[in-house]
Amino acid sequence: MQKVGVFRPKIIGFLCNWCGYAAADLAGNLRKTYSSNLRIVRVMCSGRVDPIHILYAFQHGADGVLIVGCHLGDCHYINGNYKAKMKVNFLKKFLQEMGINPDRLHIDWASAGEGNRFANIVDDFIYKVIKLGPCEIKYVRL
């Protein structure tokens, strides 16, 4: 991944405790290599990720935000990932109007057994962000 250029994006990943984080754990156990640009924040459910967390990440220099939760219908808390999906839909529209490329925000699903899938999600997303370049905004203090 580092061959593409000198630009090394900062990616914040919000992983749900039951699926996303377990998948990241499994990817490690499987000795799967994926890009090290991802900074992982564990949350109890992807529905817990508030839009303010994502905006805060962008304001403080993140080039992309990745949310990984359970597959739709498999949420540990019944419908948290549907709420996360809707929040991301709204926020993508909001970000576009405020001047950030909405592709910098990505939500995806990986169950606890899908270590390989998780690694692919991360690599694909980071490749996409590298192609987009550094984030459009500068550091803003809220």
């Binding site: 303010i52 905006l55 809707m86 929040k87 709204f90 926020l91 529209k93 909001f94 109007e97």
Partner: peptide
């Protein structure tokens, strides 16, 4: 942002009539 968050949590996930593109100029509205 809290308003956005609460509105998206209020949306019924089973409903098929949700079309966010109907909201023109979200920033101008908020």
């Amino acid at each position: 942002v809290k308003f956005l968050s609460s509105v998206s949590s209020m949306i019924d996930e089973k409903s098929r009539n949700i079309d966010i593109d109907k909201i023109k100029d979200l920033t101008g509205l908020l």
